[in-house]
Design a protein around this nucleic acid. Structure first.
Lengths: 208, 208
DNA sequence: CAGGCTATCGACACCGTGTCGAGAAAGTCG
DNA sequence: CGACTTTCTCGACACGGTGTCGATAGCCTG
């Protein structure tokens, strides 16, 4: 249970397709209703296997979410890697960075909402999310420090703490927007608002 | 189901104490483990009644959460009412306002975390939360506008959108802190950090 | 072809939920 | 006081979803 193999048993199978089919099936079902309302039965049916066969590939529904999380995180990291460092247009750089999250999470809205919810219950999910979001927090914090050294950012007492808060804001704002909650931002204004708050918090002005 | 009577049957009973006992029992149990791991059995036992008797007072575990939510919201509103309007120390005013949330939510950490999670699943909970947090968003937005009219706040394109984002940040930061997530703020630094981000976002400087 | 792996299935036991109808306790009115 | 109604409690039931097990089928490899 504590080993690194996550659900899957064997070593070099060809039924990788089935595994992917399961993950895809769950993502499809999540478009319609929350995870709690989805029975393993239905996921299995969506992947064209029996319920018991499902348990051959994953230990539980929740375990499938880990795969979904990995997919999304990989997309985000890929997007971030293509941006580089902030040059002479820091506001544009921050906006682009936030845009990666908006785009990737937006492309998988149902998954984002589900992950945010399930994280509270599933310890493995929480740990994995913590690891990944910790990296983004680090990246944000070190960039703030660098911008401060350059004399562009305002004086911030604890850059890392501020970074935690800003990233928390993004997460919650995105999830609320995707979930269609009532006091929430419209999908098309999310990026503008977040970028504005980030830049003002970091530089003291929205356009440094 | 769509009537306003939430679970309870009769009209003028004396078993109100039982109802409160149930709510208290759940809050106590939530200190230890998440809602999903708590059976109705145990809540009933905590209130010294049988499981079936529980269903006389509430339709489900989740219905008890609504009561818990109402309690917390009442405390917050009470705290906010005691603050008044921002006078000549706007930074202090914002800090006090945020402090109310930090204090009340902090006094009911387990409940806060549970509500944040259950909101995704329970429609009634989501609606009620939306209604309440919508009021706080309105309050924030109108105060920002007033501060702008006074010439103190910076020029903000969409005060309400900014208000949504800032309130979202608070919520997520508090829950993450209470839940002990890894990239999270320590309980004692939460207020400082949040107040700093709020004031900088609104005024362009942490101490207007 | 024998043996070991991957993969699939049906059947089973378990647990929590929500509902129902039968009553006990207490309060009300003739 | 006794008959009734209301408030409240309980045990028993059916249902549905979960996770596990052992049997077995296909397949590659030596």
């Amino acid at each position: 249970m504590s080993t690194t193999t996550r659900g899957r048993r064997g070593a070099r199978p060809s039924g990788d397709d089935r595994q992917r089919a399961i993950v895809d099936a769950l993502e499809g079902l999540l478009q319609t209703r929350p995870l709690a309302d989805i029975a393993v039965d239905e996921i299995a049916a969506g992947a064209a296997i029996s319920r018991s066969a499902f348990y051959f590939y994953f230990v539980s529904k929740q375990a499938v979410l880990l795969e979904l999380l990995d997919r999304m995180v990989a997309e985000v990291d890929e997007g971030l890697a293509g941006i580089g460092l902030p040059g002479d247009d820091p506001a544009g750089w921050w906006r682009s960075s936030i845009g990666v999250f908006v785009d990737v999470f937006g492309a998988h809205r149902a998954v984002s909402v589900t992950l945010a919810e399930a994280r509270a219950t599933v310890p493995e999910l929480r740990d994995e999310w913590a690891r990944r979001s910790g990296r983004w927090v680090d990246l944000t914090a070190s960039t703030i420090v660098a911008e401060r050294r350059r004399g562009r950012a305002r004086e911030i007492v604890d850059p890392r703490a501020t970074s935690v808060a800003l990233n928390a804001m993004n997460e919650r704002v995105l999830v609320a927007s995707f979930a269609g909650e009532q006091p929430a931002l419209a999908p098309d204004e999310v990026l503008d608002v977040l970028a504005d708050v980030w830049c003002t918090t970091i530089y003291g002005t929205p356009r440094p």
